[in-house]
Design a protein around this nucleic acid. Sequence first.
DNA 1: CCCAAACAGGACCGATTCAGTCCTCTATTT
DNA 2: AAATAGAGGACTGAATCGGTCCTGTTTGGG
Lengths: 170, 170
Amino acid sequence: MLRISKLADYAVVLATWLAAREQRGERHTVRDLAAVTGIHQPTVGKILKHLARHGIVDSQRGARGGYRLAARPEDVPVAAIIEALEGPIAVTECASEETAGACEYEGRCGVQESWQRINAVVGRALESVSLADMAKPGLSPRELVPVARVGGERRMARAAGDVAADDWHG
Amino acid sequence: MLRISKLADYAVVLATWLAAREQRGERHTVRDLAAVTGIHQPTVGKILKHLARHGIVDSQRGARGGYRLAARPEDVPVAAIIEALEGPIAVTECASEETAGACEYEGRCGVQESWQRINAVVGRALESVSLADMAKPGLSPRELVPVARVGGERRMARAAGDVAADDWHG
DNA sequence: CCCAAACAGGACCGATTCAGTCCTCTATTT
DNA sequence: AAATAGAGGACTGAATCGGTCCTGTTTGGG
Ligand code: FES
Ligand code: FES
């Protein structure tokens, strides 16, 4: 459990497919995407409409229309896809700053702040993985950069805000 | 979204309460826990039964019975509570190793491995936060340990397997 | 100029899941 | 024996979600 919705999962698959085929800004129709991914056509349409409204894909109507990624695959975090379909990422109702204040237990329950921290960790983990990463399994979300040598062994540092890269690398 | 269930949320609140009051191995009844947390009594009962079955709390029946934490608060990760109520943590259906192999798209969809990595990151983030951490907001899940000085500035390293600690610290 | 292609937006419903309650049984203490 | 308290599971009403469909609008081509 702790699942994202099926629609959001499909959305990531579709966006990743677009990312993998991103070349010359070609557009792809709903029909083509449905055929190639195996997802039913009406569902593909619904998902891409959501992605378009959130600026993740670029749409064009009419003959010769279709969808294409609005940004470079490495600049589109998985989190953005999920948020387009499901709204802000919030592990619990009281975890998100957007939804805070709506809880009846707020104040006397001492775990709200902890949930917000956990939520931030999960959210940033999803922010740190791009569509380009999804399309190329085995690669890390961001490359480690060598910064110094200590005792003859190369030490690594990560860019500010880079999260959980160790785990990604396994 | 990307929510845990309400029951799991309540479970964490209850377990955290037990963790905060953990002293002399005293037991607490469902009635008391319901009264103090504001959660309806039948619901509290259901949740604690789940936690007991998974060995997170220790139960005793009969007069003077009740529940208490089965381990030290710092040894109980939040992930264990969630898993007791919801089963294995799996961001998507194909992300978990337990549920893998059940997907119709498996094989031709290229994102499975990526989801498994993301799932591992999220899972380990939840593993790294204990009930003791939940009970004391503002503290980190594991303390950073100083390892070396480079250029007069203190550098930090994290224990192996420690995940996303940077974010926890904010 | 008109038609076909393709997306935009939203309504809609059936299925599934979930939260919450309740009942009966067993164990423990007094 | 009686009272207390948990074990286990059945059950239901509600809420959510997945999926489909319909109507309108935009665009390009004949
Ligand atoms: S349960 Fe809402 S603030 Fe803790
Ligand atoms: S959607 Fe199941 S393996 Fe990718």
